[in-house]
Design a protein around this nucleic acid. Structure first.
Lengths: 182, 182
DNA sequence: TTATTGTATTCAAAAACTTGAATACAATAA
DNA sequence: TTATTGTATTCAAGTTTTTGAATACAATAA
C-alpha cells in the first residue's frame, strides 16, 4: 500500500500537521489522485512516528491539544527513495459506474441516461477544480524546475482523467440515444 | 463496497462457477474495471449464498470437490436493482505513479523517465487486450441491443482509459525531456 | 447572537482486502 | 515422461480501509 509513501512524499516537500496532510488528500493532490480520511492520516502518522520515519514538533496551543508538525526523517526519506526506485503496477479502476454497465439492462434506459448525465456534470466540475490546482504551474511552464514540473504532470494526469470521463459520458449518451431510438 | 454488486451483476447475465467469476475479474471486465482475488470471490459467493442473494447447484465431480454453479435469486436481483437506481460516486484514483510525481525530485530524472516508459508499454499492451474484448461488440455496433451496448460502452471506457495513459506518458516524457535539456 | 464552517485530534468497531498456503486432477507442451 | 498451465475450491492470518462518533475552540456569516 502506498498511503505511507504518499504521506512521506508530502512531508518530503514540506513539514505539515496531520490536518494539513488530510486537507491535501481532500482538496489538493488527493482530489484527483488519492483519497484518505482524516482518521487514516492521523493513524498512519502515529505509526510512522513510532517507526521512526517521521518526527513531530509539538506546538502547544492554549486550551487544547498540541498541534503536531510532522517532518520526514532521514530514515523516512530512505524508505521513500527505496520505494520510488521500484517499478510500480497500474492501479485497478474500481468504478461503480462500470458495474452499472454490466447490469444496466435491468433498469430503464432513462435511469442509465440520468446517471451518466449526473456523472458528466460532476466531472465537468472536477476539471475546473483540478485546472485551478494547475494554474500556478501552467503559467510558468517554460521556467519550471523538475520538482514543479513533476507536480504539474501529476495534476495534468488528473485533468486528463476528468476530461476523459466527460468525453466518455458524451460518447455513451449519444450511443444510448441512438440505440433507444432504433 | 461493490464487490457484492459486481458479482451479482455477472450472475444477472448468466450462471457461473466461482472459478468463472474469478476469471472474469482477472481477464474480462476486471482486467479493465475491477479486480478481485479468487479468495475474495469465493468468500463473497459463500456469504451471498448464506444471505439468500444467490443459490448454487452442486455438480458432483468424481474424485474431487463439487463444482458449484451459482445463479442470482429474485432477492439478489432486487438488491442489485436497488443499488443500480441509487446515484454512485466517482471512484478515487489510487495510483502509485501519481505519488511518484510528488517525490520524483528525490530521484534522478533517468529513474522517472524509465518508469514512465515502462508504464507506457504496459498500457499499450492493455489497449490491445481490452480492444480484443470489444471486438465482438464493435463489429455489430449498429445492431447491438441495449444489454450488449452497455457492455460495449463499459469496455470502451476501459479502452479510453488505457489510451489516455499512453497519451499522458507521451506528454510527460516530452516535457521532462525538454526540461532536462534546459 | 446564533449558527455554520474551519482548524485540530483521537478512539473504536466493522468491513474489506491482501497474502500465502493447501488440495486435486486434467490437459497440453517440452 | 516430466513439467507446466488450467480448472476448481477452501482456509487462515494479517493489514487496510470504512464508518461513525466524540471533543474543542476560532472565526465568520446571517
Amino acid at each position: 500500500m502506498a498511503l505511507k509513501h504518499t504521506i512521506l512524499a508530502f512531508l518530503s516537500r514540506q513539514p505539515l500537521s496531520g490536518y494539513d496532510v488530510a486537507k491535501e488528500f481532500a482538496e489538493g493532490f488527493g482530489s484527483c489522485f488519492w483519497k484518505a480520511s482524516q482518521q487514516q492520516v492521523y493513524a498512519e502518522l502515529t505509526k510512522l512516528e513510532q517507526q521512526g520515519s517521521v518526527t513531530y514538533e509539538a506546538i502547544p496551543q492554549p486550551g487544547r491539544l498540541d498541534k503536531k508538525i510532522y517532518s520526514i526523517t532521514d530514515q523516512g526519506q530512505q524508505e521513500l527513495l527505496d520505494w520510488l526506485t521500484q517499478p510500480c503496477e497500474p492501479a485497478a479502476i474500481r468504478e461503480d459506474l462500470g458495474v452499472m454497465g454490466l447490469a444496466g439492462h435491468l433498469v430503464s434506459s432513462q435511469v442509465v441516461i440520468r446517471e451518466i448525465e449526473r456523472r458528466r456534470q460532476l466531472h465537468v466540475e472536477m476539471v475546473q477544480h483540478v485546472k485551478k490546482l494547475d494554474e500556478h504551474f501552467s503559467q510558468h511552464l517554460d521556467s519550471l524546475d523538475l520538482k514543479d514540473l513533476y507536480m504539474h504532470l501529476v495534476i495534468r494526469r488528473g485533468i486528463r482523467y476528468q476530461e476523459e470521463w466527460v468525453a466518455w459520458c458524451d460518447e455513451a449518451l449519444q450511443a444510448i440515444g441512438q440505440t433507444v431510438k432504433r
